[in-house]
Structures are given as structure tokens and as C-alpha cells.
Nucleic acid binder design. Sequence first.
DNA 1: AGTGTCAAAGGTCAGAGAAGGTCAAATAAT
DNA 2: ATTATTTGACCTTCTCTGACCTTTGACACT
Lengths: 158, 158
Amino acid sequence: MPNLTDYIEDYLKKLLALSSSQYIEIKRRELAGKFSCVPSQINYVLERRFPLERGYLVQSRRGGGGCIRIYRIETLRNGSWRDLIDSLDRLSFDLGRARQLVKRMVEDKIISRREAAILDQLLREDLYLLTSLNSEELRLLLRELFVNALQELLKIEY
Amino acid sequence: MPNLTDYIEDYLKKLLALSSSQYIEIKRRELAGKFSCVPSQINYVLERRFPLERGYLVQSRRGGGGCIRIYRIETLRNGSWRDLIDSLDRLSFDLGRARQLVKRMVEDKIISRREAAILDQLLREDLYLLTSLNSEELRLLLRELFVNALQELLKIEY
DNA sequence: AGTGTCAAAGGTCAGAGAAGGTCAAATAAT
DNA sequence: ATTATTTGACCTTCTCTGACCTTTGACACT
């Protein structure tokens, strides 16, 4: 026999599944109204059913126009990001794919915009012009630097 | 779910981005009119969204022909660190000093632990062993990568 | 030139209202 | 008995408005 918390959890997860973006936005009061409960019930549900460990990130803003955002950090849990990085390592590494990966990781909130900025700088070919590296050497070096940086980065919690 | 303040902030930041100079000039009354709000709302937006700590400087003149100027500037904190970075650039760059700088920036909360982790990886000499770089070439490359990454990083707000 | 007045800016501040957050106590489930 | 849920009183943050204040420049008057 499901309880209120279960119903609200299901509802939010359905919304997330339907959403075309990586997150949903809710109004605490409204949602509480829909389920005829006190607003703080929503906090309880978020705390219990949408913790970071389970792959959710909750952010909120108070005041007029405030709201709660729930992000799905889908691939963080099963470690598929690490697999992706490893595949970059083993298979052909190229700049385009690396940059693409950085972009997606930002979108999925795996890394921050600032972290992405460093990685993007690292991938700037022109910075390496002053060296005598040939293009294959450069590719291997970039791969080494990029993959390593990313692996270390993901070891540390936000 | 954006509110009035968000809209006005966006509008002003777009103007700033489009502007060819370091600042934009607005008329408080006019702007308030455009967004159908009271003039003091503009002050509120400036106070909340364009404070010095975030790299904005707001000046104004009262009276006939008065107006408000919003400058995009570098924050003091970033500025003094940037000087340090530049000095690393011009003077002798070496790994020890670079690592030390990273450490101090973390302590001063200019950069995060994760950001530091990427920079530290970048400074790992052993990653460059697979290349044919001699030690002076390596030093120059590291300097280039490091200084560039840091400079880009400081351009982005947390 | 000096002064007074007025209108046209912009500035300040307090208060109302609109969210969301916390925490402890009561209740229900296991 | 212990853990999970639910509620409600109280708190903090953010936004918006309106009444009232200050500064500046133009112009008229001496």
C-alpha cells in the first residue's frame, strides 16, 4: 500500500521521464496542493527519494518566482561516463569527440562550466604549435592529458 | 520560472555583451518603462545582479541628463591573482611554483579542489615522457598550457 | 557673475508578499 | 522497538512597490 511519499515520487519521476531536458521545475506550494499535503512534505520526498547518491541533483530558489529544480544525473551512477572516457582512450581519440564529450558532460552536470573551460583550453591545438611535435605525437599527448585530467576530476566529489 | 529581475538582468547582460566598449549606459526611467515597473526596481536589479564581487561597477549621475553606467570589470580578487599568473608567465616558470600557486588558490577559494585536480594533472611531467620534447620545450609548453588554462578559468564566474 | 527656482533625473528605505527551508512532535508501518 | 512518514509552527531569502529624499542642470532674475 503506497503512501503519499511514494505517489509524489512516482509523479516526479514520470515528469522527469517525459521531460525533454535534463531536469524538471516545480513549485513547492503547487505540488503540495496537488497532493493535498503540507509543503514541507515535498522537502521530505526530495530528501528521501532524490538524493545525490541515487543520481539526482536538487536546486532551489526562494522568494517571488522561486521554484525547485530536479536534475537527473543519469549516467553518474552506473559509471558509464568512465566507460565513455575509457573508450576515448582505447579507440581513436580525436579533438572533435573530446570537445563533444566536454560539452555533454556540462549539459549533464557531470562537470562545471569552469572545469570545462580548462579542459577546452587543454584541447587547443594552437598552444602546441611552439613545440616540435608531429601530429601523431600531438594526438597521443592530448589523449594522455585529456583522459588523465578527466579521470582524476571524476574521482573528486563536487 | 524567471521573474522580472531575471528579465532585466538578461536584458542588461545582453546589452553589455553586444556593446563594443567596456560599459553600457541606461536611463533608469526609460528602462523601468520598458519593463513596466517602478524605477527603483532597476536599482534592485543592479544591487542584486551587478555587484562588485561579480565583476560589475555601477556609476550614475542624477539630475537632468542623468544616467546609469554599468561597467564590466575584473574582480579585485581575480585581478591580483591574475597579476601573479602573469608574473609566472614572464618570469621563470617552473613546476614547483606552478603547483604552489594551485595550492594557494585552492586555499583562498579562488579555484575549487576539482579545478585544482585538473591543473595538477596538466603539470604531471611523466605524462609528457612519451613525446620527444626536450626539457626546455616541455617547460615552455607547460607554461603555455598552465597560464592559458588559468586565465580562461578566471574569466568565468562560479 | 551670482543667486534662486524648478524640473528632471537618480537614490533610499521600509513594508508587503511570495516563495522555499528547518525542525521537532505526532503518527503510522514494519 | 525502531524506522519512516506526515504535519505545522516558525524562519530565511528574494522580489516588488511606493513614498519620500538628493543631485544636477537650465534658466530667469538681479
